[in-house]
Simulated assay, not measured.
Amino acid sequence: MDFLDIPTVLKASALFNGMAALAWLTLAQLLRIAPRAGRLMAAAHLARVVSQGCGDCMAGWPLPLRQALSEFALLACVLLLLLAVRRMLRSRQRPRDIAWIGGVGGVALGAGLISGVALAPPLVSAAAVAALGSMAVREMWRGIGDRLSRPVAIGITLPFAALALMALVHGAELLLVPGWEARIREDQLPSAARAVLWFVVTAAITLSLIALMIWRLIMRIQHLMHRDPLTLALNRRAFAQALADAQAQLQRGRGFALVMMDIDHFKQVNDQHGHPAGDAALQHCVRVWQAGLRDVDRLGRLGGEEFCALLPLAVPDDLAAPAAVAERLRASLAAQPLDWQGTALRLTASFGVALPAVGDGQGEVGMARADAELYRAKADGRNRVCVATHLDGRTAPP
């Protein structure tokens, strides 16, 4: 690739990184799209500009100072990149491991610069970048490996794997290929192939994170479309779809139960304390109930103060398990009053539990059974659980 003008490639790379930093800042600050991840990515791109050096502007600088600027900037770039990936994926893992690698890498870089051994700083930098790049691959795969199709997940993760591999190869070159120390002392520019490869990997990583951000936006839109805006429980349409899916699985022997819930005397809360108190009561009930449900359970708001939970069962005909869940939810709500403007509002709810009917595509029979038990619980005095032990046949009517 002797026909390539290496300084031009480096300038193009610097221009790309500068424009990418500006784009990420625009998304973060003006459009408020993934603001924290966007600021981290902008800082990473700016660090990458610094790590490439500025050619003649550092002419005459001592070698340790030139190396310090380049290698510390590269380490900072990859550290910021990994932090941005975790923020984009909303990882709950604290960045202690990143800080540990960054701290050890920084200390080792400083020691290498003080030692005067020209190969030491780039070797340390290559090892740190390889470790951080491998961590980025792991984070990406954990975050999207089972949520996107395999080809898409591999495509988004591949640039980070390329980054780690390039760092490993460069470290091996430094150790095994003669002449590298002399090239470093003479401050030679990287080969055209290396400069172009770094540029391509940097651009690919940026595109991967843009794709990840778009995926996050799509997931957010889908989440808002399927959720009740006040309580964040499933809305009626989304719950109906979950129920239809569960009915389809029922044909394959995967049972579930329905638990209808209705807040007792909810109108009195609105009349006595106002509609804001009623909204707070609905949110409070959902928080309490969600805390008592599993990740596989589905809680939906059917309208007003009426909710329904769909509980997958290990044993299809087991009514005891969902009845116990309903009783636990009832007791939890009764034991946790809502603190509304200094007043403890005691809230209770009535529950109806029923099993579905085979062959009922939309789950209407099971919903009717659970609803009938809910009305029976209210008629019997409220704040109780009633269970449909008589199913009137195991299949839906023709």
Rank of each mutant, 00 (worst) to 15 (best):
D2I: 05
T8C: 04
A12F: 11
S13V: 00
L22Y: 08
Q29Y: 06
A37Q: 11
A42E: 10
A47M: 11
S51W: 00
Q52E: 12
G53F: 03
G53A: 07
A68S: 15
L79I: 06
R86K: 05
R92Y: 05
I101Y: 00
V104K: 02
G106Q: 00
L113A: 14
L119S: 08
L119Y: 04
A128N: 06
A130Y: 06
A131L: 15
M140D: 00
M140N: 00
D146F: 14
P151V: 04
V152E: 10
A153T: 09
G155R: 04
A161C: 01
A167P: 13
L168T: 15
G171D: 10
E181L: 02
D187A: 11
S191Q: 08
S191C: 03
W198M: 11
V200R: 11
V200N: 09
M213T: 14
M219Y: 08
H223R: 15
D228C: 07
A242R: 09
L243G: 01
D245P: 02
L250E: 08
N270L: 02
D271E: 05
H273I: 01
A281M: 03
L282K: 02
Q283R: 09
A291D: 00
R294Y: 01
R298I: 00
E306G: 02
E306V: 02
C308R: 08
C308T: 13
V315C: 10
L329C: 06
A331C: 13
A331Y: 08
L338P: 15
G342D: 02
T343A: 14
L347E: 10
T348P: 06
A368K: 13
A372T: 09
A377R: 00
K378H: 01
C386N: 03
G393N: 13
P398S: 14
